[in-house]
């Protein structure tokens, strides 16, 4: 399907790659926020995942190991946030911002010896038969495994939140932690696990940038992707499938405008670049006008069992 030289299948294939880091980070943050915790440290966890994933992939010669290590490292980093905010009851906004700063500094330190090195990259897998379908094969069935894993995580989070008892408990904790506590649920433990899940997802997203999308280590290479992930969570009003839509929209606009430019189409790049943010604002205005923001009621509120 060609639209004036623009191959739609190729475009969608590249937007899926471009959107995967923010998709992973945003779906993780959704679970964190659904549990009533606001972790603004996504950027810091992503960059930590990017550097650790890259370093481990180089040293072991295996990209999958890199991803696993990235998830573990970012989850451990998020645990410091969890300890400070859940046990010591520090302010979540300030602690999250601090986590970003720590992540950026720490990654620069860890990454120094890895600047300019080349790593094994995660190769695309062609799914037999399906990848041979003209157009759609290239678009949907010729990606690297992480693209599919990110989609599976989205579906899993959706099903888990909607259909399982554990998902219900997590949502209860996020809506009203005192009631959940009164019913005997371990609010802090549940939130800690949610924070770690969010960290692991952000780490995977970061590693995707350093192991697939670029692929190399450069200091500060996430360049604000974590903040976009946070915006997507609000844009999606905390709903997993809308997270997918939001991430592909943000990723899609970036790729679309670059491709249109490369084709020589004169487009007002500024407007296209700002459109996802304008849509986010429009969505926020719309949902608050309806009076139902769908935000977890206990979001960013501290909890102590004595209350």
């Amino acid at each position: 399907m060609d639209l004036g030289g623009l191959n739609l299948f190729v475009l969608i294939a590249s937007l899926m790659v471009s959107a995967t880091p923010i998709l992973l980070a945003a779906i993780g943050e959704t679970v964190v926020e659904k549990a009533g915790v606001l972790n603004l440290g996504v950027e810091g966890m992503m960059i930590t995942g990017a550097v650790v994933g890259f370093a481990v992939a180089i040293n072991t010669g295996s990209a999958p190991f890199g991803f696993v290590a990235a998830a573990i490292a970012a989850a451990l980093l998020s645990l410091t946030f969890g300890f400070l905010t859940q046990v010591l009851l520090s302010n979540q906004v300030a602690t999250g911002l601090g986590l970003t700063l720590v992540g950026l500094g720490l990654s620069a330190l860890i990454g120094k010896p890895y600047e300019g090195l080349k790593s094994v990259v995660l190769q695309p897998v062609k799914i037999p038969v399906l990848s041979d379908i003209p157009g759609f094969g290239r678009m949907l069935f010729s990606h690297d495994p992480m693209v599919y894993i990110s989609l599976i995580i989205v579906a899993g989070v959706w099903a888990w939140l909607k259909f399982t008892r554990a998902g219900l408990v997590l949502r209860a904790v996020g809506e009203n932690h005192e009631a959940a506590h009164a019913l005997g649920y371990k609010v802090i433990r549940i939130r800690m696990l949610a924070i770690m899940f969010g960290g692991a997802c952000a780490g995977l997203g970061g590693a995707y940038i350093s192991l697939v999308r670029v692929p190399q280590w450069t200091e500060g290479m996430t360049a604000g992707a974590g903040w976009i992930a946070l915006a997507i969570v609000v844009f999606a009003s905390w709903k997993p499938w809308r997270i997918l839509l939001g991430a592909y929209l943000f990723g899609g606009v970036t790729v679309l405008q670059l491709n249109l430019q490369a084709m020589g189409v004169a487009i007002p790049v500024e407007y296209l670049s700002m459109s996802p943010y304008l849509i986010t604002i429009a969505v926020l205005v719309f949902i608050s006008a309806r009076g139902n923001q769908n935000a977890p009621a206990a979001l960013a509120k501290p909890f102590h069992a004595s209350n």
């Binding site: 590249s14 471009s18 880091p21 670029v214 996430t222 360049a223 992707a225 970036t254 670059l258």
Partner: peptide, 9 residues
């Protein structure tokens, strides 16, 4: 400076 965007470009 935005490595991911530069690579996409």
């Amino acid at each position: 400076f935005d490595p991911a965007k530069e690579a996409d470009a």
